[in-house]
Nucleic acid binder design. Structure first.
Lengths: 231, 231
DNA sequence: AATATAGTGTGTGAAAATTACACCATTAAA
DNA sequence: TTTAATGGTGTAATTTTCACACACTATATT
């Protein structure tokens, strides 16, 4: 016996909270909408999931179309399903976050017309966002604040080679408090998954700092996990 | 300008992983399906979300209809959106978990015909479940294992008045390892959110243990949070 | 009444982790 | 050569974690 699924007028969407770190500040990626509803508002990159793609795939596609960014490792974190969150009908949205290196070269360029532009905005003093995106952002921020302390997510935000001071200032930005330099370095190095390089910082007008790399292999060995405990 | 939402043949559903603790074992609630697809299979309680209800509301309603249980505090934990997870069409499911006291009196009785019966099953040696429900369960189990250590979820599984030994055996069941009695008690009591009662255990054929209660107010005061950090 | 049974309840010392804290070194630019 | 800016380093006190064993008590059994 076949049972037919009901055919509702319901739609899934995906919204992305993309974090980056630049100039000592934590930022997220916003777009300026070019479509009703909320035309001209700022919003998280997000759009509707197609029938024949998984939500994970949709998240990647949509982010690419709206910002030009690709191949991020996105992580689902919450689904928002209030009845009236979208003014034009029932839309349930699955929210994803990702952490990336903000890279001057990488140009942010919307591919579709739905977004007029995409740009980085500091997480402090965010303007009002379209839909319930302010709430979505807040939820994402709380999540990554938590995860910073038991998952190696900090390294996704930093350049591949970084100094300990940069690492510390990232922790300070996310946790919103000052940390002690000596204790921070001692602890980070004690984990044993930071690889000290022979290189030094360049182009600074003060004593150049040593550069380090995050060693994924060592991390996985030390913590006996596949680096993806989120699920 | 109004933009019309696309009208796909897409459906949201909700699935619930309800944990309980009984006889030193962690259990979950399963139903026997009485409807295609997967008729006669065991499955997590779950069904389709109506157009005019939030997913949180849907979770409560559906659990009630399938098991007779009500007023649980359910917590969303992941959304499963593979294209072919449901054999009859595109169904994205939002999964919830809850932890409850298994209570002999409370009868499990499906209200609708979609489930033939509902019953508790130990989390060890689970049979194969319908759809991707085995994966959903696994994800839920990992989540609560994690949360046990930074959220007071253990107390939702125990009777209101419990002994320290019961609390310990719950931790042991979830973490799947033995804990040291003296250290466990010392640590738990040191938090200061357990209230020692004047009462003792009754009906045991050995020395009766003191009963304790979880003091929600103290907990909230101590940890400066609203006891709901999940979001 | 004696005894067997089963779980309750308690303390200490060693090791590890966390915290607080201050000064000299190096580089580039002025 | 001086200055401005950040890099880099060690120690002692405190707190937390961990390992570990035995006497007590309530009931059931004989």
């Amino acid at each position: 016996m076949e049972v037919k699924l009901p055919s509702f007028d319901s739609v899934f969407s995906v919204d992305c909270v993309i974090f980056g770190f630049e100039a000592g500040e934590l930022k997220i990626l916003l777009i300026e909408r070019n479509e009703e509803p909320y035309k001209d508002w700022l919003a998280l990159p997000g759009y509707i999931v197609e029938q024949d793609e998984s939500i994970d795939d949709a998240a990647e596609r949509i982010l690419y179309e709206l910002t030009g960014l690709r191949d991020l490792h996105m992580q689902q974190f919450h689904t928002f399903g209030e009845v009236n969150r979208h003014p034009q009908g029932r839309v349930i949205t699955v929210a994803y976050y990702a952490l990336i290196r903000i890279n001057g070269q990488k140009e942010l360029r919307p591919i579709t017309q739905y977004a007029r532009k995409a740009f980085w905005h500091p997480v402090n003093e965010l303007p009002k966002l379209a839909f319930d995106h302010s709430e979505i952002f807040k939820t994402a921020f709380n999540k990554i604040r938590r995860r910073l302390n038991y998952q190696p997510i900090a390294f996704e935000l930093l350049p591949e080679k970084f100094t300990l001071t940069q690492l510390q200032s990232l922790y300070e930005a996310v946790e919103n408090r000052k940390l002690d330099k000596r204790n921070f370095r001692k602890k980070m190095l004690s984990y044993g998954f930071l690889k000290e390089l022979d290189e030094k910082q360049k182009g600074v007008s003060y004593r150049a700092a040593k550069l380090y790399k995050f060693d994924r292999r060592k991390y996985a060995k030390i913590f006996h996990n596949d680096m993806n405990l989120d699920k």
